[in-house]
Design a protein around this nucleic acid. Structure first.
Length: 734
DNA sequence: AGTGCAACTCTTTTT
DNA sequence: GAGTTGCACT
């Protein structure tokens, strides 16, 4: 290299450097797991500002999580402090930011609040009481998917999201009700900005003139609506404003949010949709040993429709990942515990180990057993602070202060704690609020004030009491001193919620009052103004990772595979690798491929050591099922895996059972192993309890798990078994 | 209006 | 097996 690079660039490999210094055409960075993606993006932002003289305020970088946005901002600013001024946000938070700044054009108040799916369901239930709550939840989800796809109630393609012909009408009613509240839902944060940009030339021009560089991280998880927003933001030059420089970063092999509307095709077809695209592949992996990436590569190679990418480990060698077939969950828990213990015994930390599973319910076994063994653990993403009843109650009072049309918030707290306002009274107030004759403009507080006279006795005094509460809270909102925490505290206390929930705590042993305190605490950072309150509510609504998660304590991580994206651990154990659980039996086609990608993500989290476990017996929904190992396991070349080391007693001597960890000579598991040469040979006829008669088409010996056989049944179905671990498969004798 | 019981339903869930 | 929801009862 002729000229000397500044230090922040000199550390990059050639592909990374090319990605950072690319300009002039759309750029697609295909960044494999562990390939230094964040470093490239942050360096690129800094480089644009520092070397190319780009105004940081004209750079928009969107991510999918707040955590990623924070990290990106910090790391870019660490290289070039001016990057603080870049707009680095999640897609949704950018949408909210944009809508607040263009509120009047969007037909919204700048202090609108955001409804989550629970609120959406409540709104639906209020509009369509004939549908029960659970049904409303389902419908809310369908509507959310429709918005992900950018489909409005009158879109011709609405059937793509659900075939029910009633959907169009329900969706239309929902939209009408939602607009009447003056609030927005998650989907609106993407679709309303897009609609505004499409329709309002002045806003469009102003926005396009401002954002000259647009970066999108985790692009494989973007949905159709987000893609449309991106296109509108970037422009195509036809309005005389040159298109923004668009750079998307992602990994098609890590697209795992299809069920939430993510559209892998966005990344697969990016080069066609943005003509002239340059593609840079980052395939050097700095995280894992090659032995681990080999396994990951085998798995993901079974997917069709990939952009194609092969990870190469900078860290050669490494132990072969270990596949361990176990009897049941107890053995699985014990196996994981032993891995953790031996890690610590050999000088490591508890936090080196992560235990991954497909469903949250699987964490339970570990939660029960680990305390007994003195293993500290933390569960990532299980309990959701903001979704708790008591938290939502306080938030509803707060939201109502900003917006009297918030039907959901009003209905939630007008009678909470109980003030004698029943269903009938609520009905009277609700219809009064929306009655055009009465001119309340949909404002429930105005309606309540005007119509209280119509109510009687308890309801009347209850409404009066409620209104005077709201009035006093609004008084605090104008205060020039103190922080928002004062208001939140007053709301919690004066409303009676704190006492109400304290009472609940005593009955049920919960911590609701403490949670309210935590909410009060979180509000200290905001000013006691309407804007401060709106910002506080937005942060809570959009950044739900706020809960006390990163305590930094030394503990084993229990986590769903989905939640591990972007993380890494020295030791990873992927548990529950059983057919029916992962993948589920009904996973096929696109869904099956997505599950395979999920497995890929899970595997590539491991830096040094990877363990894979499967149980023969799995308890699911309170029932015990006999399972087969996941089909994904048979997609791994057997020689890439170790099948365990030793035979370890489970410690339950009374049953005489052993945990197969594989291992030593003659490692026999219980009574099912037969002596002598294996009867499992290709061509051998077999019978399976569920699948019927079949013929063995392939046998692969394993050191300790007995032979692995592949059987073709008369039905044409091909399935694989470890005869050692199933009683359902028998040799046919004749 | 609040409590208690039976019936239901169960993936994943950045925002 | 556990948590949630609707409904009936008081």
């Amino acid at each position: 290299m002729a000229q000397k690079l500044p230090p922040y660039l000199a550390a990059l490999n050639p592909e990374q450097l090319a990605a950072v210094r690319h300009e002039g055409s759309p750029l697609l960075i295909l960044a494999g797991a562990g390939s230094g993606k964040t470093r490239v993006v942050t360096t690129k932002i800094a480089w644009l500002v520092r070397e190319r003289g780009i105004d940081p305020a004209s750079i928009l970088a969107v991510t999918f999580t707040n955590k990623a946005a924070r990290e990106m901002r910090e790391r870019a600013a660490a290289i070039e402090p001016a990057c603080e001024r870049a707009v680095i946000r999640t897609f949704h938070s950018f949408g909210a930011w944009f809508l607040r700044r263009n509120a009047s054009q969007a037909g919204l108040a700048p202090t609108f609040t955001i409804y989550d799916e629970d609120d959406q369901a409540t709104l639906l239930h209020g509009a369509l009481p004939q549908y029960e709550r659970s049904e409303c939840r389902r419908i809310a989800q369908v509507i959310a998917r429709a918005k992900d796809l950018g489909l409005a109630p009158d879109s011709r393609d609405l059937a793509r999201v659900a075939s029910d012909p009633a959907l169009r009408r329900i969706y239309a009613i929902y939209e009408e009700r939602l607009r009447a509240t003056g609030n927005v839902d998650f989907g609106d944060l993407i679709s309303l900005p897009a609609r505004l940009l499409a329709r309002d030339e002045a806003v469009r021009r102003r926005t396009r003139q401002r954002f000259r560089v647009i970066l999108v991280d985790e692009y494989q998880d973007s949905n159709t609506a987000q893609f449309e927003l991106l296109r509108l933001l970037a422009g195509d030059g036809s309005d005389g404003i040159p298109p923004a420089y668009v750079c998307v970063v992602g990994d098609d092999d890590q697209s795992i949010y299809r069920f939430r509307g993510a559209e892998v095709r966005n990344i697969l077809s990016f080069p066609e949709l943005f003509p002239g695209t340059t593609i840079v592949r980052l395939e050097r992996n700095y995280r894992s040993y090659q032995s681990i990436l080999d396994v990951a590569g085998d798995v993901v190679s079974h997917n069709a429709g990939r952009l194609g990418k092969e990870l190469k480990a900078e860290r050669r060698g490494g132990d072969r990942p270990r596949l361990v077939l176990l009897e049941d969950q107890d053995e699985e828990t014990a196996y994981c515990a032993r891995i953790c213990e031996s890690r610590v015994r050999s000088g490591g930390r508890w936090s080196d180990v992560a235990i991954l599973y497909r469903t949250n319910a699987q964490s339970l076994a570990f939660e029960k057993e680990f305390p007994r063994r003195g293993i500290p653990y933390r569960i990532v993403g299980a309990l959701r602070f903001y979704e708790r009843e008591e938290v939502k109650d306080v938030l509803a009072y707060l939201a109502l202060l900003l917006n009297g049309r918030d039907e959901v918030a009003f209905a939630r707290v007008v009678n909470k704690p109980a003030r004698g306002i029943g269903e009938t009274s609520l009905e009277i107030l609700t219809s009064a609020a929306s009655d055009p004759e009465r001119g309340h403009g949909g404002d429930f507080l105005l309606a309540a004030a005007a119509e209280a006279e119509q109510l009687r006795g308890k309801a009347k005094s209850g409404v009066r009491e409620f209104l005077s509460l709201v009035k006093s809270f609004r008084g605090i909102l104008g205060a020039s001193e103190g922080s928002l925490a004062d208001l939140v505290e007053r709301v919690a206390h004066d409303s009676g919620l704190l006492e109400y929930h304290r009472g609940q705590d005593e009955i049920a042993g919960t911590q609701k009052a403490a949670n309210i305190d935590e909410l009060v605490n979180a509000a200290t950072l905001y000013p006691p103004t309407a804007e401060g309150l709106a910002e506080f509510l937005e942060t809570i609504e959009l950044d739900r990772s706020l809960s006390a998660e990163d305590s930094g304590a030394d503990a084993v991580t229990l986590i769903t595979m989905h939640n591990t994206k972007g993380l890494e651990f020295p030791v990873v154990i992927v548990t529950g690798l059983e057919q029916g659980l992962f993948p589920r039996d009904d996973d096929e086609g696109e869904e099956l491929e997505e599950q395979r990608r999920l497995f890929y993500v899970a595997i590539t989290r491991a830096k040094d050591e990877l363990h894979l476990t499967a149980c023969r017996w799995r308890r699911l929904h309170g029932r015990l099922y006999e399972t087969l190992p996941s089909r994904f396991l048979s997609e791994i070349a057997p020689e890439r895996l170790a099948f365990g080391g030793r035979l370890i007693p489970t410690g339950r001597a009374d049953t005489g059972r052993v945990a197969v960890q594989g291992g030593g000579p003659g490692a026999a598991s219980g009574s099912r192993s037969a002596a002598g040469p294996s009867p499992w040979r290709a061509g051998q006829a077999v019978y399976h309890e569920d699948h019927g008669a079949g013929v063995i088409i392939k046998v692969t010996p394993t050191p300790n798990s007995g032979p692995h056989v592949v059987v073709r049944f008369e039905s044409g179905k091909v399935a694989q078994f470890f005869p050692k671990f199933t009683t359902k498969l028998e040799l046919s004798r004749d």
